[in-house]
Simulated scan of single mutants.
Amino acid sequence: IKPKVGLNPKDTAAVAYEAAIGGVDLIKDDETLTDQTFCPLGERLPLIMEQLDTVKSETGRTVLYAVNISTAGDRIVERAREAARMGANMLMIDVIVCGFDAVRAVAEEPGINLPIHVHRTMHAAITRNREHGIAMRPICRLVRMLGGDQLHTGTVSGKMEHDITELRGDNLALTEPFFDLKPVFPVASGGLHPGGVHKEVSMLGRDIILQAGGGIHGHPEGTRAGAAAMRQAVDAAVAGIDPATYAADHPELKRALDKWGIA
């Protein structure tokens, strides 16, 4: 949900409804939104889940909400328990900020059993300079071993760096057979919009989550139309249809392509 910070719980829930009714399958908090006074987790989570229940009653679709439980290491398990008690259907952890063991602690905690969306915020401090630090690949392995279910790895069309060979290798580290560990969903995020969906799917495959923020909310007709445009772009990519051709009779996608173009 954008903007990153500033919306109160009621407004956040209203935006979540618009995105969900427009066609998205997963809504997440921003990495910078946790439990601030202007939008406390305890108020935000029930209101968003109420809106997603409305979406389910209206459409039959279950939409996931990854609530950001990131906090100090000695408090994250209790925050995860609280979120589960309030009806959360997914959790989110900023793994670099909270520490790798935060993911393990929540994943292994009895009684929670919710998928964990792992954000890599601050990773560039250790991954971007090829002369020192560590690459994204070991982080992928660690998150998988610790019990994460989804991990941001990057895009081939967005605003981040684009080493496609390396990115494909990172995604394979999450999805290919690796001892007895379950696979992890790669998440493509960062400057993603409907015009980039075809490139993401054609180059990274269909076992991926496409995470758009501004590429949905920045649609000229608003969040609902932006979500519909993303959904239409995915439908076109999966069907192997050129996005411009598909947009001819899908007005939401056409407006998005007119604004952002095709990557």
Score class of each variant (00 low, 15 high):
T32P: 09
A16G: 02
G214D: 09
A244M: 13
A16M: 00
P183E: 12
I241E: 12
A256Y: 00
A88E: 14
H123L: 09
V234C: 05
A229W: 00
N171R: 10
V143M: 12
L47K: 08
A102R: 04
L142K: 08
V156G: 07
I112R: 01
G215T: 05
C39Q: 08
K4N: 12
S189Y: 05
I69E: 08
R130D: 10
G226D: 06
L114N: 10
R75N: 13
E18Y: 04
R130I: 15
Y246S: 07
A19V: 01
H123I: 09
D149R: 00
L253P: 04
T54Y: 14
P138L: 03
D74Y: 07
M86S: 15
A256L: 03
P3R: 01
E176C: 14
Y17M: 07
P46R: 01
I241T: 11
K182N: 11
R206L: 10
T153E: 05
A84C: 14
V184T: 10
G87R: 08
P220L: 05
L253W: 00
K28F: 02
D25K: 03
H132G: 11
D235T: 06
L253M: 07
A13T: 07
I164H: 11
P177F: 08
N89F: 01
V118Y: 03
L41T: 10
G111Q: 05
A83G: 10
R81D: 15
G111V: 02
R79I: 05
A227W: 00
L192G: 00
D35C: 08
V238H: 08
L33W: 06
R206E: 13
D180F: 10
G226M: 02
L91G: 08
A20T: 09
G191F: 03
Q51G: 08
R79F: 06
T37C: 10
N8E: 11
G99V: 03
P3Q: 10
L204Q: 09
G148V: 04
V143I: 12
G111S: 01
G147Y: 02
M160K: 02
P110E: 13
R224Q: 13
W260L: 07
T153V: 04
R85W: 06
A19D: 02
V97C: 15
V55M: 00
D94G: 06
A80I: 02
W260R: 05
V67E: 15
V234R: 05
H123K: 11
C98F: 05
L181Q: 11
L91I: 13
M92P: 09
R79K: 14
R168K: 11
D101Q: 15
I262D: 03
M203R: 11
G154N: 07
G261C: 03
Y17H: 03
R255V: 11
A228D: 03
P243M: 01
R137Q: 14
H219V: 01
D242H: 06
T37D: 14
A227N: 00
E18K: 13
I164Q: 15
R137V: 15
E43V: 09
Q36L: 07
D11H: 13
R81V: 13
R144A: 09
P177A: 14
G190C: 02
L253C: 09
L33Y: 07
N129W: 12
D30M: 06
G148F: 04
V5R: 08
D94C: 02
F185Y: 13
S70C: 02
G73N: 11
G133S: 04
N8Y: 10
Y17P: 04
